[in-house]
Nucleic acid binder design. Structure first.
Lengths: 334, 334
DNA sequence: TTGCACAATGGCAACGTTAACATTTGGTCG
DNA sequence: CGACCAAATGTTAACGTTGCCATTGTGCAA
């Protein structure tokens, strides 16, 4: 009658079924070398006792955890949900689980994330690198801990994967130039954002590659309010017929700011954003923007670890291009 | 010279430091009964060999994993990021880790999520219950697996926690009635959403409690587009001076829909949303809305499990109220 | 009848850690 | 000087699982 507190082990099952522990283990793994009727007896015993294999015993024996750790410096970031969706999907596919850890700390190092992870039951780790860690250049992954960084930067010892921010800007700028615009103005973001700076660099270099000297950029802070201010400022610039904002919120803010100064989008000015995050939110506009496949980024990272299965697969650098989505905020001026 | 593949155990450290394994273990846990100079010798050996304690051995010995599992039916959902932030923060506080699992399956059961989790190294689990599982009423948590459900519904055997959707609607409706509006129109959401239906019920019952027969609702689908259509439809209704939309996107869509029909917000019609999700996205409006503390929901869930520490603490039901945030989309008509 | 192959099962050890108990050492007090 | 105490360290066993090898049983060919 007393509640059974102790957990049930193979030993208990073996005793009840009248077989050896080994036979129980073999039944759990559905080995063909156990007679069907024996299996059934063992299974009945497992059901009766409520047996569930113990993860610790198993991992200790096997030396594998079938788990990938994910270290994030800040959890609330654009695209993180989609990335997690990707982590979870890929993990699922390989029979792995995902362990999440928030890493904070000043300074903010890969070494810190790594040592934190190493105390957890994981076979490898993914670091979402929103900001630049202090030790990026010198970091060495722990032996036996396959490490994938989510960043556009390359690393000599760790595989990396991310959206191709540079190519994103190239697509946008070339698209706008292709529509006949003479130049493309840019609304940037805070300088601490890695991906934002890469977008900025892509914008600048693509313009130069087409023989256009980049105009002075307007610095924003990711919010629509800053985009609004930028739009108002650019409304007075007669050379400004096309604006590229580093995210959709600023792009939308910019449109409203232009409108508040009597400019119409796209008749007078074309505007493009990035992230495709406003589809369900803005009812009366279809913003031209770039859609990233963050889920695919997440899957790639986990595939790299869970798919390797101990085989020391080489370091790879993967960039996943975004897709330009045409809305109604760009006008062909040719 | 040959790369050392095998992992380093206490035994190796003990041998190198010339002490017993127990002394190594004591050093790892910084026990006061080891002489400082011995500790230093051991630490040096650990560094030299790159020793890291093995999670599996430890958990096997201790019978605890110091990990909480989180089961989600769909990862991409409003507020999930904030909830995860809460999970991670609370886990951190208790020295726990978070293990994430996506549960899919038709039908969609707590039993399925639970048995999936039971094969992972977790001491307890949290289920984010976006939809209604088939076995909600009959589900029994596995013995030794403390289970917390994120839902507004109560459960006899599992603790539950969620935002108080009912109270959210009460706040909004009473606020609008308090501003002198005779009734409050409602833009609802798809019927499969649990929280959405609770908002709807709260709207209906609060109106009735104030002696107002709820007007016919307009069904939306969470998108701004559906809100836009609803706004256009309601613009022709002369009794409609106040609209409550079950999320911000629809509220914003509604505002634009009203405007497209010549109605001004808030001069002609007041509009309130839910979620406080548009702050950085809409530049020229401050939507009156309700802000939920999803991080706190997440923290409560993990606290319940990690804080219990084996003590069988009772089943609790926690509802966390949202906070009405006043913007510029409501007019006092008294 | 013997020998042999093969199917089914059992026994044992080891994975890495640490709680509980045992032992040694050095020092203090009666 | 011996008895006793505390500090520091060592020994043993156990947590649950499973790979390896040994053992038993069964049928069949020589």
């Amino acid at each position: 009658m007393a509640a059974v507190k102790k957990s049930v082990s193979v030993k208990d099952v073996a005793r009840l079924a009248g077989v050896s522990e080994q036979t129980v283990s073999r039944t759990v793994h559905d080995s063909p070398s156990v007679r069907p009727e024996t299996k059934e007896r063992v299974r009945a015993a497992m059901r009766e006792l409520g047996y569930r294999p113990n993860f610790a015993g198993r991992s200790l024996r096997r030396g594998k955890f079938k788990t990938v750790g994910v270290a994030m410096f800040n959890i609330t970031g654009t695209g993180n949900l989609d990335r997690m969706e990707g982590f979870a999907a890929a993990a699922d596919k390989h029979g792995y689980a995902i362990t999440l850890t928030k890493v904070d700390g000043h300074p903010y190092t890969l070494e810190g994330a790594s040592s934190r992870m190493s105390a957890l039951p994981v076979d490898g780790m993914v670091v979402i690198m929103n900001r630049m860690p202090a030790d990026f250049g010198t970091f060495e992954p722990l032996p036996g801990m396959q490490t994938v960084l989510v960043t556009m930067l390359e690393h000599p010892l760790c595989s990396t994967v991310d959206n191709d921010q540079f190519d994103c800007s190239r697509q946008v700028v070339e698209y706008l130039l292709g529509q006949g615009h003479k130049t493309v103005h840019f609304i940037s973001c805070p300088e601490r954002s890695l991906s934002g700076m890469q977008r900025e660099e892509g914008w600048r270099e693509t313009l130069r590659a087409h023989g256009v000297e980049p105009p002075r950029l307007v610095r924003g802070d990711w919010t629509a309010q800053s985009g609004y201010a930028a739009g108002q400022a650019l409304a007075d610039d007669p050379t400004c017929t096309a604006i590229y904002a580093s995210n959709d919120a600023m792009a939308y803010g910019c449109i409203r700011g232009l409108e508040s100064r009597g400019k119409r989008v796209p008749q007078d000015v074309s505007v493009v954003g990035v992230d495709d995050s406003l589809g369900d939110i803005v009812p009366d506009r279809r913003l031209t923007t770039v859609r990233f496949d963050n889920k695919r980024v997440g899957m790639w990272a986990v595939d790299k670890i869970a798919g390797a299965e101990g085989v020391a697969s080489g370091v790879e650098h993967m960039l996943i291009p975004g897709m330009l989505v045409e809305g109604d905020t760009v006008r062909d001026v040719r």
